[in-house]
């Protein structure tokens, strides 16, 4: 039996989740009494293997093929690794690239697929996966009776593996069939900077879907004005075209770490939190006492933003707009 993890990298760097995978994989391997193997597919595989060689990793397999992620290559390579190396648990990141190949591997090898695990346990031969549903309002335990499985893990849930390892590094010939590669990555682009860099701000007032209407933005704009803050937002506000892309905080937006992050009408979805959890002080205003944002907040107001924000504007000598 083996626990097998597949590293994630982009444009020359291993992504943080790769080292978290080693920790999650080692824990599972310990519980199941198995070895932990890691694979790295494409890119500067030798350098990556070197970095992944941390404590607790028994073996590293490198598939030397191409530079960047290509889902056809990853799906073929991972399938081939699973089929040839006696893998029981394939653990991959629930990253955007993970989303682009892991379900295909599960389907190819005909194993169940469980995504976005926040905890893994192995009890009496049963793998127990903890995951969230309904916008993080509910947690479930999913049990899989003695069978192999593909599971993807959420980033930043496990600490990165540390220490030097003595894993055996070997090259794996995945025998990639080029004729079946139906996708071609032609390049990368970065979102343009725009008028402000929210990652530089000391005080961010951040607005979410709770604002309801574009016209209501006037309210937070007034708050930003009187407090000299910078305005940022969660994704739906940008999706709706109410604020430009460079204002979006989160996984696909900007990483910010201001002195104070004031989240107004933001639920605290994992992809949002990924971009702001390192803020020094987090304050949340939300009508829902169970909103996940309160889990990471230092100060909280359970209340209606349309009541609280006007009062706050007045606190700083402003006049709330009529909305």
């Amino acid at each position: 039996m083996t626990v097998f993890v597949v590293a994630d990298h982009r444009r020359g760097d291993l992504r943080d989740v790769s080292f978290e995978l080693l920790t999650a994989g080692r824990e599972l391997a310990d519980a199941a009494g198995t070895d932990l193997h890691a694979a790295v597919i494409s890119g500067d595989t030798d350098a990556f293997a070197d970095k992944l060689n941390r404590e607790g990793v028994d073996a590293i397999h490198v598939v030397d093929y191409g530079e960047e992620f290509n889902h056809d290559v990853y799906a073929q390579a991972a399938t081939s690794l699973v089929e040839n190396l006696g893998v029981d648990f394939l653990v991959v990141p629930n990253s955007v690239n993970g989303l682009d190949y892991a379900p295909a591997v599960a389907s190819r090898v005909d194993w169940p697929y469980v995504s976005d695990a926040v905890d893994l346990g192995y009890v009496d031969g049963t793998l127990e996966i903890t995951r969230e549903m309904y916008g993080s309002k509910v947690e479930t335990t999913v049990a899989i009776d003695d069978g192999p499985v593909v599971v993807s893990i959420r980033g930043a849930e496990w600490p990165p593996a540390e220490g030097d390892g003595d894993a055996v590094v070997s090259t794996f010939d995945a025998d990639i069939d080029e004729d079946t590669v139906g996708s071609t990555v032609t390049g990368f682009e970065e979102a343009d900077g725009g008028d402000v860099d929210i990652s530089e701000a000391e005080f961010l007032v951040s607005i979410g879907r709770g604002i309801e209407e574009e016209e209501n933005l006037e309210l937070v704009e007034e708050l930003v004005d009187v407090t000299d803050a910078i305005l940022s937002s969660s994704r739906p506000v940008v999706d709706n075209g109410w604020l430009p892309e460079n204002r979006q905080v989160g996984q696909s937006g900007k990483q910010v770490a201001p002195d104070v992050y004031l989240a107004i009408g933001i639920s605290g979805a994992v992809q949002h939190v990924a971009g702001m959890k390192n803020s020094d002080t987090i304050i949340a205003i939300n009508t829902d006492p169970n909103a996940p944002i309160f889990d990471i907040a230092d100060y909280g107001i359970v209340g209606d933003l349309f009541d609280v924000v006007p009062e706050l504007i007045e606190q700083f000598g402003g006049t709330p707009p009529d909305i």
């Binding site: 982009r10 444009r11 992504r15 992620f69 990253s95 955007v96 690239n97 682009d100 996708s183 071609t184 990555v185 032609t186 390049g187 990368f188 682009e189 970065e190 979102a191 892309e245 996984q251 696909s252 937006g253 900007k254 990483q255």
Partner: peptide, 12 residues
């Protein structure tokens, strides 16, 4: 494809 951190992958 929208990747993490404001990076997009162009793919055919």
């Amino acid at each position: 494809r929208e990747l993490e951190g404001g990076v997009e992958e162009l793919t055919d």
